Simulated scan of single mutants.
Amino acid sequence: MSGKNFALIGASGYVAPRHMRAIRDTGNRLVAATDPADSVGILDSFGFDIAFFPEFERFDRHVEKLRRLGEERRVHYVSICSPNYLHDAHVRFALRVGADAICEKPLVLNPWNLDALAELEQETGKRVYTVLQLRLHPVIRALRERFAHASASDKKHVVKLDYITSRGNWYFHSWKGEERKSGGIATNIGIHFFDMLLWIFGAMRNYEVTESSEKRIAGNLDLERADVSWRLSIDNKDLPSEVREKGKTTFRSILVDGEEVEFTEGFTDLHTEVYRDILAGGGFGLEDARPSIELVSLLRKQK
């Protein structure tokens, strides 16, 4: 039987269908899924024999049973789309049942969690991968090639990042609105962009938070090769008027030395590219995730 067996944690989440498509489109099988919410009819689009469990304990028992049935039946990868504060525990589960973990952003909320997971990787011989899909976006990769090799004497670039993704009142009544569970706006919606900036323009030298509220956070970053001003918001009132008039709810803008970087297209298929990269022996691991996790942890402390 060709292909690998996947289990998925967090099947009712917003991003889960992207993982389901990535599993299918890379020639693999989703064999089990769990979520405390049972609104998971989306599973039927990917197979009618996927074992589903609202209770994690029953999911745990099922995956363990599959492990004991041998190589063809065991779960090879666990895809993790659960709330941010549960990622660490669910990654540990994956490694304990003999599977590699593919975890949504942020991999963990705190840098010290990465150290503990690194020890568990050593103990189990399994790997932890994270989804840093912007690193695979053609425009972002070209940008890195353009700027990554500047010398220390070169003039620093000036970067402005604006990311507004509208959210309604429900957001503040869910785990996403609780900082201790989501890590706050900088972590929950900003982690990909911070990773992208650090990947392109080098390590952080200094940082500051200039504005922080329930719906937005803004600040400045001093990176090796760029001075960055950034703003993240979930308030639709922050959308430019021309964006609202078109009925759109999201606005992304990155200016590098006054030049707009257009990378709006191509977002939806990047998870499949992440999976292809992992299955081909690549993938982004614990140390790839560390710089952005360290940064957002510092931003939380300065608020």
Rank of each mutant, 00 (worst) to 15 (best):
G219A: 06
A152V: 10
R18A: 07
G47P: 08
R74T: 14
L270C: 09
T34A: 08
D162G: 11
R21G: 13
G10A: 10
I278M: 09
P36N: 09
E71W: 12
S82T: 10
L114V: 01
T249E: 03
D115I: 09
R141F: 06
V78G: 05
H192S: 11
H149Y: 15
A186I: 08
A16D: 05
F284A: 01
L132D: 12
G125V: 14
K246R: 10
L197I: 04
H87T: 09
E208F: 06
I293F: 01
V40T: 14
V158I: 07
T268F: 03
F201N: 06
L161V: 01
A94P: 00
T272A: 13
V31R: 01
K65G: 14
E287G: 12
G27Q: 02
R96T: 06
E245C: 06
K65E: 13
I217G: 02
G70A: 13
A280I: 12
G3N: 15
V296C: 12
K181P: 01
A203Q: 07
E64K: 08
N236R: 02
P240C: 10
V274P: 12
A99S: 04
V159R: 00
S253I: 00
F52W: 11
S213Q: 00
F6V: 01
I102H: 11
R96M: 06
S12T: 07
S182L: 00
K105G: 03
L279N: 11
A32C: 04
Q122D: 04
G219H: 07
G10Y: 06
E55N: 10
G10H: 12
G281L: 01
T130H: 03
D162T: 04
